[in-house]
Amino acid sequence: MKRTIFFNNKPKIIGCSAVAGPKESSGSIKDYIQIKLLDDMFGEKTFEKAETKMLFSAIKDCFFSAKKSESEVDAIISGDLLNQIIASTFSARNFSCGYVGVYNACATFTEALTLGAMMIDGGYFNNVVCATSSHFSSAERQYRYPLELGSTRPPQSQWTVTGAGASLISRNGEGPKIISATIGKVVDFGVLDANNMGAAMAAAAANTILTHFIDCKITNNEYDLIVTGDLGTLGSRIVKDLLWEKGFDIEKQHVDCGELIYSIKEDEYQGGSGAGCSSVVFNSYLMDKLKKKKLNKILLVATGALLSSVSSQQGESIPSIAHAVAVES
């Protein structure tokens, strides 16, 4: 069985862009976000339309930052959290490029990056855009309660990021290189609480990181940063514990996009989550540091909880997945 891929041609990330809502734009990575929104409706009538427009803007701006025209891009690989990934498909209908829709909940971004890198490395395509988005208000309705319902948020809960991020991967050009990727495995330890997704996803993250270390025959010291997607404070602690148990102490290298994105005060509790979380942080803050060579080698591990509102209602546990992508400056 083989889960780790090494890219011989090292696809380059030559363009990136992140669009973020008002709350994210005032958080700790605010200086790195390319497009900051003052209003999370983005001038649209519904939250779903706003999310679609965010994803569209991120992809468009990504073309621009890579200095590529639409006709030079072969395919867009994108996903989001809405039913039937409509934010992705509806934004993709505006472009003439091919489209591949993917879904792995909040792990979609690294899934898209992995697939994109494979297409480039295999020599099939020259330029591919990988993008994901999420929106607090549309996700809240999708997975939880109506916005105006006066319910309390338990302390394990996370806050879905309102934002979209896109990366343009190319065979040629200048930019951080994707060197390897580890495909995740669906892991389920029987966590039932849909408000505690960090705990469910940490198991998957630990599995993928461990597999990556073993397959690459490296240790945690290989990387400057090991970035998990949206485990939150609790999930981060669990993944560190689980890996420590297996003999890898990632305490020093580990950082979580969910913990990073907000200046956590009160209501976000565990930090951000959502498909947009890892893609916003990666395409703004992390890409900036990689381009400036402040970071040399990072492992991005986006994590996804593969539940639906139907499965939770039927009492199923939460299977989770994590895909890892190693990027070198």
Partner: peptide, 12 residues
């Protein structure tokens, strides 16, 4: 695993 999660989860 569930016991461990319960143990370290923040309390209301």
């Amino acid at each position: 695993y569930l016991d461990y999660v319960k143990h370290i989860a923040p309390k209301t």
